[in-house]
């Protein structure tokens, strides 16, 4: 009884929030281009859905995010692995890594767009960059935390390098790796938007800018909600991966 009620709590809270929003709009009577009502946003949502523009731009942003995540995660994992293994490589690369982290992505986004154009390449690059560091750090931490006794075990049965990688290092560091992916997934949404806000002809960031420019504030709201949806979706996927691959960590129910 209690559990079935608490399951609805989240939904109830969202509904209350929307009602409060509607009330504020009615009480304050602000112009629509300052604060549209939930109904306005819903109508705008349906309209942009009907003319196909919303799906097009969402798809575009999703593509940037996915590609950015893919390249960012792959490169960070590979480099992180070698970094974890070699102290001297760590010394050589660490000034660049620290510097790359010190520069805010917003500051170099215009530069990347200048170099790589306003198309998808620059956005994917920005996403990869923003994802890179947290995934790299988690990879290093994860690989270094593999228990030495398990290396002993693998070596005592004469495991090859690849076997050690796939049967020990990968599964042992998976919890931390997925933790990095979780952070990276959220960051890549930010990366894509930052890029699109600087200069783009497609994507939710572009939609945001156009909406803002034309005082179509309802459109801005629609775009923001789509972004939230994308971020939650990615987060959900990582959670599913954790459920699937980290069953051994969860307490027995």
């Amino acid at each position: 009884m209690k559990t079935s009620f608490s399951r609805w709590l989240g939904l109830i809270s969202v509904l209350l929030g929307i009602i409060a929003w509607e009330l504020i709009v009615r009480v304050t009577d602000l112009p629509r281009f300052i604060l549209p009502s939930p109904v306005d946003v819903w109508v705008r949502f349906l309209k942009s859905l009907a003319d196909g523009s919303l799906l097009l731009h969402t798809g575009y942003t999703l593509l940037e995010i996915t590609l950015g995540l893919f390249f960012g995660v792959i490169s960070a994992t590979i480099i992180g692995y070698f970094l974890a293994k070699s102290r001297s490589l760590e010394k050589i690369l660490s000034p660049y890594l620290v510097a790359s982290q010190a520069v805010p992505i917003v500051a170099i986004a215009p530069l990347l767009i200048l170099w790589f154009g306003s198309g998808i390449t620059s956005k994917v690059l920005i996403c990869s960059l923003i994802v890179f560091f947290p995934v790299l750090v988690n990879t290093v931490v994860g690989v270094r935390a593999v228990p030495p006794v398990l290396y002993d075990l693998m070596r005592s049965v004469r495991a090859t390098r690849w076997q050690i990688l796939f049967k020990l290092e990968l599964p042992a560091s998976l919890p931390v790796l997925l933790g990095g992916l979780r952070i990276g997934a959220t960051l890549s949404v930010i990366g894509a938007i930052v890029g699109e806000l600087v200069d783009a002809k497609n994507g939710l960031g572009f939609l945001l800018k156009v909406g803002d420019f034309q005082y179509d504030t309802a459109m801005v709201f629609v775009a923001v909600f789509m972004l939230i949806t994308l971020a939650l979706m990615l987060y959900g996927i990582v959670t599913l991966l954790e459920k699937r691959f980290l069953r051994w960590q969860q307490p027995a129910s």
């Binding site: 398990l150 075990l153 599964p171």
Partner: peptide
């Protein structure tokens, strides 16, 4: 075949999968 002083099973493998590891390799 080595039995270590501290038990060092792989926490992500079940009993069965831990035991068959050497054969897998």
């Amino acid at each position: 075949g080595m039995v270590f002083q501290q038990s060092n099973l792989m926490p992500w493998r079940t009993v069965m999968d831990n035991i068959k590891l050497p054969l897998e390799l």
